[in-house]
Design a protein around this nucleic acid. Structure first.
Lengths: 144, 144
DNA sequence: ATTTAAAACGTAATATTTACGATTTACAAT
DNA sequence: ATTGTAAATCGTAAATATTACGTTTTAAAT
């Protein structure tokens, strides 16, 4: 997914094309990593000082619905990132310090033989957590 | 893991053997499914009316540390279940309505060839979510 | 330009988790 | 059995994350 694609999804689905939404898309595009609602608000408030949480959460939910961002949760917080890679199903290596990701081209669901009985599958999650090289350095050599 | 095993872990690690902890272990053993802190408190308050959240959360963290329960989070809540299956690494099918699980004997990490560069892996998660047969019935035929 | 439904504001409520001083209790040493 | 002590729990409050709502503003169609 690219910037234009995301903006077109907004238009195509008939949602209003506000400056804030455009900016929100840009934030996710530029960062291309998992962000918490708080982090998103901080970025947005640089341009829109009085921006409220209501707007953030409402639009995060909307963006997730229409496929502009994908979400997950770790360490008790829900986190969102720009949908990467067109429509192909994928998974992530995630740095739990900065939220940066690397795509994994393996899906464990392919190894599940047949459908389980008496169980309707609605989704699955495969994520590898760790520390990326730049965060590893930061931790080893704390800033002073 | 069985009931005795869990109680012995407590003793072996030198933690005090209180009635509440014994009861907590029993709750997890009996339910053998994922429970939220709120659910655990409800079960416990049947026997200990005035029990506080502090005690619940403190002991959940302890139990997770010493390997009596394992934890995950979904729908914005952290959930805990009795450690199933001795020491063997495993994953779960999880009913997101009742928390019941089924063990999966496939681990996607085996399919990851070699270690990724510039990334220290600290953990991973593979979970399949869905609705178990009894919850499916409950949803289809709402109680009146 | 006017209209209108959607979006955002400002603020409050809810839910979950964590924290802390005071009190009680399990366990060991006497 | 009694006593001493560190750990566990209580009661309550604070911190954090998320959701809700009436009012006002705004994008976009008429």
């Amino acid at each position: 997914m690219d910037l234009q694609g995301a903006l077109e999804i907004l238009k195509r689905n008939g949602y209003k094309y506000t400056g804030k939404r455009k900016r929100l898309v840009e934030v996710f595009y530029r960062e291309s990593r998992y962000l918490s609602a708080k982090e998103v608000l901080d970025y947005m408030q640089a341009d829109y000082p009085g921006l409220s949480f209501d707007t953030i959460y409402r639009n995060l939910a909307l963006f997730e619905d229409i496929g502009i961002v994908e979400a997950t949760e770790w360490q008790g917080e829900r986190r969102y990132r720009f949908c990467c890679g067109g429509d192909e199903h994928h998974h992530h290596l995630i740095c739990t310090f900065c939220g940066k990701t690397r795509t994994i081209h393996v899906c464990p669901m392919n190894a599940i033989l047949g459908k389980p009985e008496d169980f309707d599958i609605t989704g699955h999650k495969f994520e590898i957590y760790g520390t990326c090289s730049s965060c590893k350095t930061d931790v080893a050599v704390p800033k002073m």
